[in-house]
């Protein structure tokens, strides 16, 4: 209790908590769709593109968000298209794009400002990154994501489970794909500066993969992912404060611990069923 009161006396930590919880929640809910549709790589690709865009923006002296959000949204469209058309091996294409974006970011940075703390914090995250405006934007994105889940839950299920069937029953699948791409892009840009470009995709992947270990219905996977994301984020940030470890990495380790715990639960319950 004492610890929590102490942490919340720092305004930057309050912002980190508020923004981080919202971003983790969005990432987890979008992650359920992305992971189940085998689009996991898109999150990873987008974070690298986002890093490239941010570094270019910093080097040119532009404000980072207005530049990187449109670029990442464009990249999201592009990656979805590659994955859908199936013309090129999409996993290879995405890996190529992420490496290229990362390289552009690094080269531009080293030519201009050099590896400043700004850029390094984009790589590995910084707990100081959340500004007041970021928190508001995170709140807006979460409102949209939650609204989408509340009002279109059944359509989301249909699109995620079986795109062809959803299309045949008249769901506008491409509209949902666009929406998901845009929301994922914004979530990644928002979360990246706190979690780091290298680690942000874990916010998307871990909660869904962890929940899938144990839960057997779509509804329970969605709930569990949302709850896990928030709990792990809080544990991670608290640990980061107590042990002075980097925020992003601490959150990922908390996620990993949850994943291993769920694997254990699954193994134990499978063992019980057999005996």
């Amino acid at each position: 209790m004492e610890l929590i009161r102490e942490m919340l006396s720092y305004p930057f930590l309050v912002r980190a908590f508020a923004g981080g919880i919202l971003v983790s929640l969005c990432a987890a809910l979008l992650g359920v769709m992305l992971v189940l549709r085998r689009y996991s790589m898109i999150g990873d690709g987008l974070s690298h593109v986002s890093f490239g865009a941010l570094s270019v923006a910093v080097a040119a002296g532009w404000s980072p968000l207005p530049v990187s959000i449109p670029v990442v949204i464009l990249a999201a469209f592009f990656l979805l298209r590659i994955t859908e058309s199936g013309k090129m091996k999409s996993d290879a294409a995405i890996a190529m794009i992420s490496a290229s974006a990362l390289a552009v970011g690094i080269v531009v940075t080293s030519l201009t400002t050099g590896m400043t703390t700004d850029v390094s914090s984009y790589m590995f995250g910084s707990i100081l990154a959340m500004s007041r405006a970021d928190v508001w934007l995170s709140a807006a994105v979460s409102a949209v994501v939650l609204g989408l889940y509340v009002f279109c839950y059944h359509k989301i299920f249909a699109v995620t489970f079986d795109e062809s069937f959803a299309k045949a029953t008249g769901v506008r699948v491409s509209l949902y794909n666009v929406l998901i791409a845009v929301l994922t892009a914004v979530t990644i840009v928002l979360g990246m500066r706190m979690m780091g470009a290298m680690l942000i995709s874990s916010l998307i992947l871990f909660p869904a993969l962890t929940s899938m270990r144990v839960f057997k219905s779509f509804r329970s996977v969605v709930w569990s992912s949302g709850i896990l994301a928030v709990v792990c984020f809080c544990i991670g940030i608290t640990a980061s404060y107590v042990f002075s470890t980097p925020a992003g990495a601490s959150v990922v380790l908390a996620d990993l611990a949850a994943f291993l715990l769920f694997c254990l639960i699954r193994a134990v319950s499978a063992g019980k069923r057999k005996s």
């Binding site: 299920f157 029953t169 329970s220």
Partner: peptide, 30 residues
């Protein structure tokens, strides 16, 4: 109401966490 359609199964579906009821009910979407 659309035609009852049974698409080819995709690899992603084979390990999808959903109950039978959830899947069947999604047919009533239209």
């Amino acid at each position: 109401t659309g035609i009852g359609y049974l698409p080819q199964q995709t690899a992603a579906q084979r390990d999808f966490p959903a109950t039978v009821y959830e899947v069947v009910l999604s047919g009533a979407l239209s």
